[in-house]
Amino acid sequence: MPELVIETERLTRDFRIRGKGATALRRSTLRAVDNLQLRVTPGESLGYIGANGAGKSTTIKMLVGILVPTSGSVRTCGLDPHRDRRRLAAEVGVVFGQRSQLWWDLPVRESFEILAAIHRLPGPDARARTGELIEQLELHDFLATPVRQLSLGQRMRAEVAAALLHRPRLVILDEPTIGLDVLSKQRLREFLITERHTHGTTLLLTTHDMGDIERLCERVLVVDHGSTVYDGNLDGLARAAGSDRTLVLDFVDATPDLTGIPHTTHLGSEVAGARQRLAFDSEKTTAAAVLAAVGQQAELRDLTIEEPDIEDVVRRIYQARR
């Protein structure tokens, strides 16, 4: 059994918060992470989803040794992140969407040179790796530009390169695509896919962008108020939420509402029934069976199948818990 890259055991973190005004002397406790059990094997790609304040950043900070757990334990790359922080720093690369590892007043290339010295990479190794990252992340055009003059998309690509310069085994990306345009997102995702493929890097990604999860993650972890509400693959997430797929049916003529098809729910009609939406449970029936039943009642002109929207799925999971 290979060594786990991340292993937490009942990982818990509380914050003591002070009230405002009259309650300033009273302290209350907020549980940001609640008994998190997480095991990530080498090469896995894990998407970590949750609303703001669900405890994602706190978990990441505990994984890299910035915060100490209130109780429970955490091991990252086989190390205690708090005690062995400096050794761990060689194994982990982190991109915080909101904070920069680059020197704002230096050209991008100089930041890389300094980071290579900090990580004590041998010269040829540092040059080879920098070259590889420049090539794959397409950094050529702005290598000589001071970081403060970069666009958001350029800066984020430079940040990713900075975090990956020392070839970490585990790469943690906290909201890497926040604020990026479609093209920049696309580029970054493609790079991460290649990087995983060629180096077997383990990825942990927090994001609000479901596209990131769909493209990059085999496994999804949904957290709510510090505790895990789902841990599994993407398809299973949709099933867990009981989310149905939707058939959008266009008919030749106006058609009365199709309410009697087995294992389906009529979601609505438009254009006097010429377009109708039916949700069907893919566990109990098939699209073909539904179509056959529909075909007996009206003449179909066109159809599309809508996959469940993950954002919607997560919302449902949250709602089911309240």
Binding site: R85, R86, A89, A90, V92, F96, I118, H119, R120
Partner: peptide, 9 residues
Amino acid sequence: DVFYLRPQP
């Protein structure tokens, strides 16, 4: 926080 990610005190 970024200092924490580097292998130095």
